[in-house]
Simulated scan of single mutants.
Amino acid sequence: MAEGFVLKAVGDQAILVGLGDSISEDTSRRVMSLNAKVRMTVWEENGILETVPAFNSLLIRYNPLVIGYSSVCHLIRSFMKQGGQDTGTDGRLVEIPVCYGGEYGGDLAFVANHAGLLEQEVVDIHCGRDYRIYMLGFLPGFPYLGGLDERLFTPRLPTPRVCIPAGSVGIGGEQTGIYPLDSPGGWRLIGRTPLKLFDPRKGGELPYAAGDSIRFIPIGEEEFKAVQLQQETR
């Protein structure tokens, strides 16, 4: 990959910056570093409209009536030459309460059996580390999280479910994530959070963003219902 990155035009209003071929924390940090530089240095008044970070790329959308393709490419190259790749790469740590197993995580037993572990061991391992949000996608606010312990790698369902309840925490292959809305899906469900992560009626603001980290906090059913009630009465 020339110069450690590649530039690709996406129509006449966006550029895709490829920053690696792998899904890893190092690549994610490169993506978020460039994202931070673009957002801090130039914005709408200079023609930059939006940035969309992904696993190993950054989409930069611009207004071609204000700034041209070659000028955006020049800006990107100058940012990449600056070094300091840690700029803006450490986001917030967001705690997400989760009730594991039972009616809230019907696949916990399968995950445990697949791993050769007890269900409580799966819970302890899943809660035992922080997970970096590599990107948001699939659904509004769905966080694709990196750093899942290899012992918990579990294949997806052969046939996706028609509807997964909002707040469900699942494992799909080598990743874990949270379904913020009711949705079809094929990940193995191990728990559920009572938090309303995405509510379009309230502007769709999320408690996290790409580059942040999530820490899962185990809670019991009573606490789940109490937090859920608080969420519904807000």
Rank of each mutant, 00 (worst) to 15 (best):
P158S: 14
G141R: 11
I133L: 10
L145D: 06
G146F: 00
L136A: 13
L136Y: 12
T154E: 00
G147E: 11
L136V: 11
L136K: 13
L136C: 13
L157T: 03
T154Y: 04
Y131W: 00
P155F: 01
F138E: 11
M135G: 11
P158N: 02
R132S: 07
L145G: 04
M135A: 15
M135Y: 06
Y131Q: 02
L139Y: 11
I133W: 04
F138D: 11
L152I: 02
R132M: 12
P155K: 11
G146D: 00
M135H: 09
R161Q: 14
D130K: 14
F138L: 13
L148N: 01
D130L: 03
L145N: 01
L148I: 00
Y134H: 15
P160C: 09
R151Q: 14
L139Q: 15
L152W: 04
R132Y: 05
E150K: 14
Y134Q: 03
G141C: 12
G147V: 11
G146H: 06
T159N: 13
P140H: 11
P155A: 11
P155H: 09
L157I: 10
F142P: 11
L152G: 03
Y134G: 14
G146I: 03
P160I: 04
M135D: 07
P158F: 01
G146E: 00
F153H: 15
L136N: 13
T159R: 15
L157S: 08
G137P: 13
P143L: 04
L145F: 02
G147D: 09
D130Y: 08
L152V: 07
G146N: 02
F153T: 05
R132L: 15
L139W: 12
F153C: 02
Y134F: 15
L148W: 03
P143S: 08
P160A: 05
R132F: 04
G146V: 06
G137W: 08
R161Y: 12
L136M: 12
G146L: 02
Y131S: 07
T154M: 06
G146M: 04
R132H: 14
G141K: 11
L148T: 01
R132C: 03
F138K: 04
E150T: 03
P143D: 00
F142M: 06
R161G: 13
L136E: 11
R151N: 09
